[in-house]
Write a protein that binds this DNA or RNA. Structure first.
Lengths: 220, 220
DNA sequence: GTGGCATAGAATGGATCCATTCTCAATCAG
DNA sequence: CTGATTGAGAATGGATCCATTCTATGCCAC
């Protein structure tokens, strides 16, 4: 019956999906303004679904709208990013603890596979994508949609700075990340809440401190 | 020049302010649907600013929008609310710790005054309003807008259940709350981070456990 | 030459109208 | 009597046009 080919969903959702990718990929960097007409024109739609999409993305922490001033991608200075990472330390450890009892064997296997790919990854874009999927998958068992939404918001807000950091650090520091991930995987396999919280908060905390050492990432 | 009487701000902001109050006051309870036309008619505006307002409130955690299905006030079951309170324990203690160094003497005096009013309050609506203002004021020094927005979201999500709980508990349990608040005020006056975290997380945790004991609050 | 101000252009906010989707109740088959 | 189905009504999504606000460039006074 439904042979109608692409014709996907609502226009606002399509626009939101496009902008979400563009912002997370760094094509639309923090601080830059998003003009509704530009996007509307590109999609052959009116400005209405674009405004709708921008509001949706605001809920996800990817845009900020001000009345009569338009939409921007939020940019953070060093202090703001530090606080967001402290929020991550507290929120994501909770998400992991609640997820732990519900993680399936399939998901565990996929985590192992993702970590293998992470260790084999060569370019930054691939690593960032795999790393995001890895961590979010460890939270997949969490039975609270609100908590998961918060976690996603935090990841969205910090995505650009993770990329900027990785681009400036081509060294082998990656070995530390892999060690942390392996310890985390082991703790997950053992369903060890204490070690999970320990390794995850340590992982995030170390990144936070590393970021604070690199003021060149910020453009304030 | 600007004698034009009310004519305040953008229509979407006015609608948002009205709905925000109505939801927080419990006039629009969790689970109920909000029809755009109803609100638009009440304000003599079109449905457009109403949709805009509903999206704004979604960012604040006060509404939920689904494509082609309209807007609802989010409702939580026992498990969801328990998780949100656990998030509060972790997020609000961080907000308080970061706020502590920047709280002014004026703000401290106002906190004392608010607590006096809380102890003198007689009806539930007054208590809820004062209690919300009290806690949010303790976070007022926090230099991170993102963290404050998260705290506000969490308070918004739980407001209705706090009221339902208070309405069913007219006893003197209030003395415990007052003791907790007094201890918190003292720790704030001493700028004692450890005690602040201790008393605040204890305050939230006790409420969380109390709520879990009252299934009649939930309508699932 | 510098600073403030006014005006033109552009971008956003809002209203009205039309298209699409959903909901729900009544009907009919089993 | 129970369940699925279909059609009418209502509610939401989107397009176009107009009003309002912001911004930036250039001009003028000092």
């Amino acid at each position: 019956m439904d042979d109608s080919p692409p014709r996907s969903e609502a226009a606002s959702e399509r626009v939101a999906a496009y902008l979400r990718q563009a912002i997370l990929n760094g094509e639309i960097p923090p601080g830059s303004r998003i003009r509704q007409e530009d996007i509307a024109e590109r999609f052959g739609a009116s400005r209405l679904p674009v405004r709708e999409a921008l509001r949706m993305l605001e809920t996800e922490g990817l845009t900020q709208l001000e009345v009569n001033k338009g939409a921007r991608v939020p940019a953070f200075d060093r202090l703001q990013l530090d606080v967001i990472y402290q929020m991550r330390e507290r929120i994501e450890t909770l998400a992991l603890r609640l997820s732990l009892p519900y993680l399936t064997a399939d998901q565990e296997a996929e985590l192992q596979d993702l970590q293998d790919q992470i260790e084999a990854s060569e370019d930054v874009a691939t690593f960032l994508d795999l790393d995001r999927r890895f961590h979010l998958l460890t939270y997949a068992g969490c039975p609270s949609p609100e908590l998961l939404a918060s976690v996603t918001r935090l990841w969205n807000s910090t995505q650009h700075y993770r990329r900027a950091f990785m681009l400036q650090n081509t060294e082998d520091r990656q070995t530390i990340v892999n060690a942390e991930h392996r310890l985390l995987l082991d703790a997950i396999a053992r369903r060890d809440e204490v070690d999970c919280e320990r390794f995850l908060s340590g992982h995030i905390r170390r990144t936070r401190i590393k970021l604070a050492d690199h003021p060149e990432i910020f453009d304030d």
